[in-house]
């Protein structure tokens, strides 16, 4: 579904992503893990077309990122790290705008927005402006934004950050539910969450890929049971 090949990104002299390659298969939930500053967000930003790679290629289905970015954007729903959204817009207005831009047909637009509002429990806040919302609600608007128009691929950058424990459970539930039919790549610092949700993990550290396997295989390979210990070993190398 997605093939990342030799992806490299420099910010000036700083190398944020260093020859990273991995694949994501259709219907898979992939956890992209790593400490802060490891390059996860940069990988997402390149994949979603916000940044251009210094070198390397990303292929989504049959589209290449340097040639067919417009087609790739249609396939991907993206939740950025801080989910910053227009502060003065009403939640409903914002979702309506996203639905328009994502080409949701006007006759099923209202129903689709209503479905997403139900799924993300946004019904009470639809007519509030976004700057009135709490962090948790804002994050959920971001998730609704990502799901709008039923994209085949979801890229979720720390979807549960800033949420309370109940909301984290709810969000995890949402991810697992939609993960049945969609391809998802997401990151989190809560390792138990990664353990509970992902089919496979890619771990990056200082811009380089240090692991790409299922948790079970990593356990066998490193002879460690806890995911925390595995994470620690792989990302403390230098």
């Amino acid at each position: 579904m997605i093939a990342i090949q030799d992806l490299t990104k420099y910010y000036g002299d700083l190398c944020a992503v260093d020859h990273v390659s991995f694949d994501i298969h259709k219907g898979e939930i992939l956890g992209l893990l790593g400490p802060n500053g490891a390059g996860k967000t940069t990988i997402y930003r390149i994949l979603t077309g916000y940044l251009r790679p210094t070198s390397g290629d990303i292929r989504v289905k049959d589209f290449h990122i340097n040639e067919n970015l417009a087609e790739i954007k249609k396939l991907i729903g993206y939740l950025p790290e801080a989910a910053p959204i227009y502060p003065e817009m009403l939640v409903y207005e914002y979702l309506d705008f996203v639905a328009d831009v994502r080409g949701v047909a006007s006759n099923r637009k209202v129903a689709h927005i209503r479905d997403l509002a139900d799924l993300c429990s946004l019904n009470q806040v639809m007519h509030m402006t976004i700057n009135e919302l709490s962090k948790g609600y804002r994050q959920r608007v971001g998730i609704a934004h990502a799901l709008m128009g039923d994209p085949e691929i979801l890229v979720l950058d720390e979807p549960t950050s800033g949420l309370d424990p109940n909301q984290i459970v709810e969000t995890r539930e949402i991810i697992r539910r939609i993960g049945k039919e969609k391809t998802i790549i997401f990151s989190t610092h809560i390792l138990s969450e990664a353990e509970a949700t992902c089919d496979r993990m890619v771990i990056v550290n200082q811009g380089r890929k240090v692991a790409d396997d299922t948790l079970d295989n990593l356990r066998k390979e490193l002879k460690e049971q806890s995911i925390e210990a595995i994470f620690h070993i792989l990302t403390q190398g230098n």
């Binding site: 930003r45 077309g49 916000y50 954007k73 227009y86």
Partner: peptide, 9 residues
């Protein structure tokens, strides 16, 4: 919000 806008199609 520019990041959201630009990653839309």
């Amino acid at each position: 919000s520019f990041e959201l806008l630009i990653t839309l199609p």
